[in-house]
Simulated assay, not measured.
Amino acid sequence: MVFAEGTGTITFTSPAPSPTWATDDQVCEFGPSLPSPEGVRVAATKHPNGELEVRVSDESDEVSFRTPLPPLPSGLLITSTWRAGTVTVFVNGTRVGAVSAAPVA
């Protein structure tokens, strides 16, 4: 499990798919990203209720974050870091959450 054993960062960017994507009532999918050298990928979904779901996965685990859609200039920039079993996600520079991805004994 990459998250529990290593340290790393992956950044994923996507242009706006339409001028109204952030405010319309449509589902909008982003990603998945290309894998990091450690095999980590990022994907996101904008839900009709305005929430953004960010999924970060390695070969054996996935963590998910849901957050209200932050102010967006024109696209989406997601950065995820992991260290000692904790995965942290930033959307357009704003930290949206952190979760433990360490294996349960």
Rank of each mutant, 00 (worst) to 15 (best):
N49V: 12
E59K: 02
L69C: 10
D58T: 14
C28H: 15
G39E: 12
T45C: 12
P32I: 14
P48N: 10
L52G: 07
V54K: 02
N49E: 11
D58H: 14
S36E: 08
W21E: 13
P17Y: 00
G39R: 14
F30S: 06
V42Y: 13
S57D: 09
G50N: 15
P68C: 05
T67H: 08
E62D: 07
N49T: 12
H47G: 00
K46Q: 07
S60H: 06
S33A: 05
D24S: 08
E59Y: 04
P37R: 14
V27C: 08
S33R: 06
S64G: 01
F65W: 07
R66D: 01
E38P: 08
T20S: 03
L69D: 10
P35S: 06
A16D: 11
P71I: 07
P68N: 08
A44T: 03
P48R: 14
P48H: 11
G39N: 11
T45W: 10
P68E: 05
P48I: 15
V54S: 00
V27H: 01
P37F: 13
P68T: 03
P35D: 03
T45F: 07
V63I: 13
A43V: 03
E59D: 03
Q26D: 09
P37K: 14
L69T: 08
P48S: 11
P70K: 05
E53Q: 11
N49R: 04
E62K: 01
P70W: 09
C28K: 15
V40H: 11
R55G: 05
P17W: 01
T45M: 12
E53F: 02
P19E: 04
H47L: 12
V42Q: 13
T45L: 14
A22R: 04
F30I: 11
R55Y: 11
D24N: 13
R66Y: 10
A22P: 01
A16G: 15
C28L: 01
P48W: 12
C28F: 07
S14L: 02
A44E: 03
P19A: 09
P71R: 03
T13F: 09
L52K: 13
E53I: 06
V54I: 04
S18N: 04
E62M: 09
E59Q: 01
V54A: 05
T13L: 04
L52D: 02
L34K: 06
G31D: 01
P19G: 04
P15S: 04
T20N: 06
R66C: 01
E51P: 02
S33V: 07
P71K: 00
R41W: 09
P68G: 10
Q26N: 12
D58V: 15
A44R: 00
A44S: 05
S64Y: 02
S64R: 12
R55F: 14
S18Y: 09
P19D: 08
H47M: 12
R41S: 15
E62Y: 02
P19V: 08
P37N: 11
F65Y: 11
P37G: 12
T13I: 03
E51D: 11
D58F: 14
R41E: 14
D25F: 02
P32K: 08
S14H: 08
D58L: 13
F30Y: 07
P15H: 04
T20I: 01
E62A: 14
P19I: 12
F65C: 10
C28A: 10
G50E: 13
G39C: 13
